Simulated assay, not measured.
Amino acid sequence: MNSVCKFSVRRIGNLLSLNLIKSPTATLVYRNQQGLRNLRNINTLNNSDSPKLFNYHLPNNKKFYGSNLRYSTTTSKPQPTPPKNFKETVKNRNVGPFSWKGLVIFILTGLGLLAYFKNEKKKVLEKRPFELLNQDGKLVTDKDLLGKFLLVYFGFTHCPDICPEELDKMSKVIDIINNEKEFGGNVLTPIFISCDPNRDTVEVVREYIRDFHEDMVGLTGSHEQISKVAKSYRVYYSQPPQLQPGDEYLVDHSIFIYLMNPDGEFVDAYGKNVDAEQTASSIVNHVKDFLERGGVIKKEEIK
C-alpha cells in the first residue's frame, strides 16, 4: 500500500511537470505531499475534476491552508459592548452589596426610624400626672411632690416575694443617695403605688410601708385612678377575672423602678436585674447632670 502511495505522488509530479494534468485537485495533492504522508485511507487517484479525490477523515474544526495543517479557534463568545460614557457606567454599577435603589431605601428607612425614636423619646419625657390617696388618707397629686427626685414602684401588699425585694432595694438606694454629702441632704423620695385597689386600702398600705423606709410614701385609690396612673407610666398590671370577696390571688404587674426628676419628668427606669449599687450610681449621675443644667432641688423633707 505504501509503495502505491509513493508511486502515485511521484507520478503526479511527473505529469504536472509535463502539463498533462491540469486538475485543481491533483495540483492540491502535489503541493501538500508532505502533509498527505500522515493521512490514511488513500484509495485511488482520479485525474477528473471530482472534488472527492481521496477518502480521508479530518476533525470538524481542522482545515487545510496551503502546505500547513491549521486549527480553527473561532468558538469564543462575543465580548459585551462597553458603556458609551461614564454616567452610564455609574448608573449600572452596584455599590457594595446594595444597588443605588437599595441604598436610597436604606437611607429613607433610617431617617424614618430616627424620627420615630425622637417622637418616642419626647413621649417618655412627658410628665406623669397622678391623683391618689397617701397612707394618711390625704389626696396627693404629682404637683405636690415636685422639687425632689422620685423613685416610683408599682406593686401590691400581698405580693409574696418580688415586691418586698424591690422595695428593700429601693430603700437601700434612698440611703445611698440621701447620704451623699455632695448633694447636701435629702434629694430623693421613695413612692409605692398599689395596683390592687380591692385589698390595698389606706390602712393596709400604711402598715405595709412601715417595714421598708421611713421616708416612703404609699399611694392607693380607686380602680379608675390607679388605671389612669399606670397608663401614664406605661405600667402593665392584671388581676384574675371573676373574683369573689375573700379570694386569695396574685396581681401580675411590671417590675420597674421609675426615676422622676424634680420637674416631674421621667428620667430612667431600673429593672429587677439591676442591683442597689448600680441603681444608685446611675441616679447620682442623673442628679449631677440635673444640677449642672441649672436644676433646683428642694431641701425640705416631703411627707
Rank of each mutant, 00 (worst) to 15 (best):
M1A: 13
F7V: 07
L16C: 00
N19E: 13
I21D: 05
P24S: 01
L28A: 09
V29K: 02
Y30T: 00
Q33P: 00
L39F: 14
R40F: 06
N43I: 09
T44K: 12
N47Y: 15
S48C: 07
D49S: 08
S50N: 15
P51K: 14
Y65H: 11
Y65R: 10
G66I: 04
T73D: 05
T73G: 10
T73I: 08
T73H: 09
S76E: 10
Q79K: 14
Q79P: 00
T81L: 11
T81C: 07
K84Q: 13
N85M: 04
K87T: 03
E88N: 07
N92P: 05
F98E: 10
W100F: 07
W100Y: 10
V104F: 05
I107E: 03
L111Y: 12
L113M: 13
L113A: 14
F117T: 15
K123T: 14
L125F: 05
K127N: 05
K127P: 01
P129F: 01
P129H: 02
E131W: 09
D136S: 14
K138D: 05
F156R: 08
P160L: 01
P160E: 05
P160D: 08
C163A: 14
K169D: 08
K172S: 11
K172L: 12
I177H: 04
N178M: 11
N178W: 11
F183K: 05
G184R: 10
N186Q: 13
V187S: 08
T189A: 01
P190T: 03
I191Q: 05
P197S: 09
N198E: 04
R199F: 03
M216A: 01
G218V: 08
L219Q: 13
T220Y: 03
S222T: 15
H223W: 14
Q225C: 00
Q225M: 11
K231M: 10
V235I: 12
P241I: 04
L243G: 04
H253T: 11
F256S: 01
F256H: 06
Y258W: 06
L259R: 12
D263L: 00
K272G: 03
A276H: 14
E277S: 05
V284W: 00
R293Q: 15
K298D: 07
E300P: 04
E301K: 14
K303H: 11
K303I: 03
